[in-house]
Amino acid sequence: MSAIKNYFQQECKFPMLGLEHSKPSDFYTSVWQSTRSSVPLLLWRVLLLLTSVAIVITSFAFYIKSPFSVGYWFIYLTHWGLVLMIASTGFGVATSARVYFYGPISADLNLPWYVKTFWVFHNVAIPVAFLITVFYWTLLYSVDFQEEMDAGLDIAVHAVNTLMMLLLLMSSSHPTRFLHMVHPFLFALTYVVFSVIFYFAGGVNPFGEPWIYPVVNWTKPGPTILLVFVTGVMLIALHFVTVGLAAARDALANRIMRPSVTVYVDEDVALRTHTAQTEANT
């Protein structure tokens, strides 16, 4: 109990709401590597990004080929989650690539904007992906609701998305903070506001019905408000799950990997520069 109490005393301090971290290398090295090279995580994040882009392009292409307007693609929370998946993996790649070409990020200054942006997208994309998967398989699947124009793809975007974000989380090193629950909560609130505006503006789904999801139907405000509240509580719970997974990741990595990180004398030199210099000397 004392460990839990100490955790909340530390995590619930106001500075923890911010986006600063004393060890910038946690954003471009993995807990599963024994060096400070940015290359392993860069390659892994590129793979995740390419897979994410392929999923989105496939989903978008089916809408283009369908008899419905491609604009309908943008009304679904699932597709918002897919965009988050690209944003989080994309900024992860950008952070790792920046270190590869220009050298490590200094701990003497505040974190650069692109690192903070990656952190926010990471905080939002993971619990939202979990929520989309749970929401689909517990509520929408039972009413035979299908967002995609292909049944196989419909299943993929509600399962692979969670797998992708889980892989991103478990390969990272940076912390997932308790108070950062505000990031996915604000995203969810934005979507709720969008759905309300969509309804009152006379928006309809591809089949001409005045709702985006059958279980979120603003023509029946009572049940819909209750469901939105329960879903919000679930999202916060899934953020706690994300925090727990990050803690378990760190604990397991600390047991498996060597306690100290191998440090080279020239580690402050960008790997790209170092490679070029080595080739020139030979």
Results as ranks from 00 to 15, higher is better:
residue 163 L to Y: 12
residue 33 Q to K: 05
residue 62 F to I: 05
residue 148 E to W: 02
residue 268 D to H: 14
residue 5 K to D: 14
residue 222 G to Q: 06
residue 48 L to M: 12
residue 9 Q to E: 14
residue 206 P to V: 02
residue 176 T to M: 13
residue 155 I to V: 15
residue 195 S to M: 09
residue 9 Q to C: 13
residue 48 L to I: 03
residue 259 P to A: 02
residue 165 M to H: 10
residue 165 M to P: 10
residue 201 A to K: 12
residue 60 F to D: 06
residue 160 V to D: 06
residue 121 F to Q: 08
residue 170 M to P: 02
residue 64 I to T: 03
residue 188 A to L: 15
residue 47 L to W: 02
residue 6 N to R: 13
residue 230 V to Q: 11
residue 14 F to D: 09
residue 201 A to S: 15
residue 82 L to A: 01
residue 273 T to P: 02
residue 274 H to Q: 15
residue 259 P to M: 03
residue 233 V to D: 07
residue 101 F to V: 11
residue 147 E to Q: 12
residue 39 V to P: 04
residue 98 R to M: 14
residue 230 V to N: 04
residue 160 V to M: 09
residue 6 N to Q: 12
residue 266 D to I: 04
residue 162 T to D: 08
residue 204 V to C: 01
residue 90 G to D: 07
residue 8 F to L: 15
residue 179 L to S: 07
residue 218 W to T: 03
residue 53 V to I: 15
residue 126 I to K: 07
residue 238 L to F: 11
residue 71 G to N: 10
residue 88 S to F: 05
residue 118 F to G: 12
residue 132 I to R: 03
residue 231 T to L: 15
residue 138 T to I: 03
residue 1 M to R: 02
residue 188 A to E: 03
residue 83 V to W: 12
residue 114 Y to W: 09
residue 69 S to A: 13
residue 230 V to S: 10
residue 8 F to W: 14
residue 91 F to R: 05
